[in-house]
Amino acid sequence: MKVIVQEQPFDPYRETRRYEEQHLPPGKHGAVVTFVGTMRDFNDGHEVSRMFLEYYPGMTERHIEAVCLEAMEKWDVMDVLVLHRHGELRVGEPIVLVAVWSAHRAHAFDACRYVINYLKERAPFWKCESTPEGMRWVEHNTADPGVNSEGLKRRSA
């Protein structure tokens, strides 16, 4: 498992492949599920041109690692990689990568969703957006419609 919070832009697909080549024995996993969160040019009805992402060095990594370990206990997962940006971001750039390797797809899908949803809920990051009206702190994340942190299965009726 690896968790990195970095200022430099990254290519999530290249990083997934590189990690796999370095850490996963060939032929043992049957599924890789990746989630890539990217920066939109709109949020909450505002045009957004740039964004600054603040974090709490130490606490942020610790909480992402805890979420990854929980996912690895709940599902049959071989490895997890999380990369997350901080600092200045531009429209279209990847903000976060969650990659999960497993023998079978169901575990990889569920674990990936768990990691990104609980990361959004617990990891201390704060988005500050540059809009035509000036800089504004984002007060809450957009909900994944109809889905709680555990996924669709536990959606209330």
Partner: peptide
Amino acid sequence: VAFFPPVTGG
């Protein structure tokens, strides 16, 4: 001790 608003990462 840290004080902060709701988190908005990901």
